[in-house]
């Protein structure tokens, strides 16, 4: 077994929408209003090996970004542990926590919103390395030029502003900003979903080149299985806040176990429909405010039984390195 980079243990994140004054008043007067609570991530555990590439796939709203944000340290978990290089993030001292925060970087979905529109590229990329002492303020130009070259951007453009670049170039700026603090682990949240199809392949290639050169570890989040097929060694499938299946990529595509994975896979070849809000599986995604009982997937599952409605299936090992949460596996 290779070295473990990151371990997530029973991680949970709820979003509670507190009632405002009017709401509380109405509630006192007997109206049927409650605080709304969303279990965006509901007891997720997973392990990511050093230099591994894990693809995290699920429909929009299933909690992928929330999980990614918690791992990147942007969002505090409600409960559960994140263990990075053997130390829980909450047990780290100040120095260790800062090191971990810089070593885990995130690449965002929206190449427009993720860059500060009022800063020049040189400052966007160079601000953090200077602030954290990776380079002297006087050497910022050279430092930034090196990073820009690495991601395929012409350093001549470093004094420009984000609006003067195309979507693909902006995404490279975002990647350069992350690389500038010498990360070891990248969380890529739908990092190519907003790009033209022709540019997507280029950016994926860049990610893979960087992996070779810098020994990076990736958590690659996508709503589209076909995106992770060629780059990840392991795929994690999420549904309504829970992991439903984990498998090595080749095995998952060859022999998907969970009915939800099978449904996702059935839709993969239809590349023409690939889009941001594309909903591949038949039936509506249930509201995360009020998830179905038992197996979350039962209202859409062709194999659902009465047991599926009542009892939540646990994640079980179904083969070496493969786990799945479905009652159908109990028979065998």
């Amino acid at each position: 077994m290779s070295e473990v980079m990151l371990e997530v243990d029973n991680l949970t994140r709820n979003f509670v929408k507190k009632l405002d004054l009017a709401g509380r008043l109405a509630q006192k007067l007997g109206a049927d209003i409650r605080e709304e609570s969303v279990h965006a991530v509901d007891g997720v555990s997973l392990t990511i090996a050093k230099k591994g590439v894990v693809g995290l796939v699920g429909e929009s709203g299933c909690g992928k970004s929330t999980l990614g944000r918690m791992i990147a340290g942007i969002l505090p978990p409600t409960s559960g542990r994140i263990v990075y290089k053997g130390i829980s993030l909450t047990d780290m001292n100040f120095e260790e926590a800062k090191r971990a925060a810089l070593e885990i970087q995130m690449i965002f979905q929206d190449p427009f919103a993720s860059l500060n529109p009022r800063m020049r590229v040189v400052d966007i990329i160079g601000e953090a390395p200077v602030a954290h002492g990776f380079c002297k303020p006087s050497e910022i130009n050279k430092y930034v030029s090196d990073v820009m070259q690495r991601v395929g951007l012409d350093p001549e453009y470093r004094r420009r502003y984000p609006h003067q670049f195309s979507g693909g170039q902006r995404q490279r700026i975002g990647i350069a900003r992350a690389l500038a603090v010498k990360p070891e682990f990248l969380v890529c949240d739908e990092a190519i979903a907003a790009l033209d199809v022709s540019i997507q392949a280029q950016v994926i290639n860049l990610f893979m080149d960087l992996r070779e050169d810098l020994d990076l570890t990736y958590l690659f989040i996508s709503h589209d299985l076909s995106v992770v097929e060629h780059i990840s060694d392991q795929v994690v499938i999420m549904y309504l806040g829970r992991i439903v299946e984990v498998a090595p990529t080749a095995e998952l595509f060859e022999k998907p176990n969970h009915p939800y994975t099978q449904a996702l896979l059935n839709e993969v070849p239809r590349v023409d429909q690939r889009g941001r809000d594309y909903q591949p599986v038949e039936g509506e995604i249930p509201s995360p405010l009020d998830p179905p009982s038992g197996c979350h997937f039962h209202p859409r599952c062709p194999h659902a039984t009465s047991r599926c409605k009542a009892e939540r299936p646990v994640l079980r090992e179904i083969a070496p390195g493969r786990i799945s949460a479905c009652h159908l596996n109990d028979g065998t």
Binding site: A72, I74, L102, A113, S114, N116, A128, G174, R177, V181
Partner: peptide, 22 residues
């Protein structure tokens, strides 16, 4: 709530810097 603010906090920049520079 825009991503560039999240990016700044991901880069472990100080609160002051995020509020006043970003």
């Amino acid at each position: 709530n825009k991503e560039y603010i999240e990016a700044a906090s991901c880069l472990a920049l100080s609160n002051n810097r995020i509020v006043f520079r970003h």
